[in-house]
């Protein structure tokens, strides 16, 4: 009998702490798949954020580091500069990357650090209990926007991929989601592409993944997935925003 599906070696066989229907588990798996397929498990170093994925170092089966809230791109810079032969990726959520860590991500991107950043955007703060994120959508109710996010008061959701794509130092940007198999495959391809570009020394790669948070969206997992397709994609359009390799 042929084995058609197996746990990637780069993902530990442990139970995660993620809520039912959370997207983090899927994204972890896709990264682990990509690491296995690229054969880089023994020279990859991941950086876990502060946020729901803070315990990622317990799930990945390779070297992983903690970073202070928002500082993963600076930590990644230090690592990559010290050991360019290692493959460094930062795994960040929307609060970590787009609120407290906005300076670090913009400057690491603009310097064109040869690193990969995987940005899980679920439009809400999970770890602290469902507060507004920089990517929370207009009208979206959270713990700290009980009447729904108002543009006049809280500003509008930040489109990080569009923001970063404009920098010359950024070589690859794609926004994906994980709502259905086709999108999951697309996400895995984007993650793999970003890592491959780093391996080939081609520079900064960024993959934004729209991901569900059924718990703090107050929705059933299946409905949460539908929510991404019906509302989130409208605000955060899917697709490749930049790829220097395409020009060839």
């Amino acid at each position: 009998m042929t084995k058609v599906f197996t746990r990637p070696y780069s993902l530990k066989d442990v139970e995660t702490h993620y809520c039912g229907g959370c997207g983090h588990g899927i994204v972890h798996r896709l990264i682990a798949d990509a690491v296995d397929e690229l054969g880089i498990r023994e020279r990859v170093v991941g950086i876990a954020p502060v946020g729901c994925a803070v315990l990622a170092y317990d799930y990945f089966n390779f070297d992983v580091c903690e970073a202070a809230h928002g500082r993963a791109p600076a930590v990644a810079t230090g690592m990559k500069r010290a050991r360019p032969d290692l493959i460094i990726f930062a795994y960040q959520g929307d609060g970590d990357l787009a609120a407290i860590g906005m300076a670090e991500i913009i400057h690491a991107a603009n310097r064109g650090e040869n690193i990969s950043v995987f940005f899980v955007n679920n439009a809400v703060y999970g770890m602290t209990g469902g507060q507004m994120a920089p990517t929370t959508m207009i009208g979206q109710k959270t713990e700290t926007t009980p009447r729904g996010r108002l543009m006049e008061q809280e500003g509008s959701p930040i489109r990080v991929s569009e923001l970063l794509a404009q920098f010359d130092g950024v070589k690859f940007v794609e926004r994906c989601t994980i709502t259905k198999p086709k999108n999951v495959n697309r996400t895995k391809a984007a993650i793999t592409h970003a890592l491959r570009m780093q391996i080939e020394g081609k520079g900064f790669g960024f993959v934004e993944i729209l991901s569900p948070c059924p718990t703090y969206w107050g929705l059933q997992p299946r409905v949460a997935m539908k929510m991404i397709e019906e509302r989130m994609i409208e605000v955060f359009p899917l697709g490749q925003l930049k790829d220097i390799e395409e020009k060839k």
Binding site: V45, A68, A74, V75, T77, G78, M79, R81, A82, R83
Partner: peptide, 10 residues
């Protein structure tokens, strides 16, 4: 200081 953190970590 976080770049120092990264370099120290490797």
């Amino acid at each position: 200081i976080n770049m120092v953190f990264g370099a120290a970590a490797i």
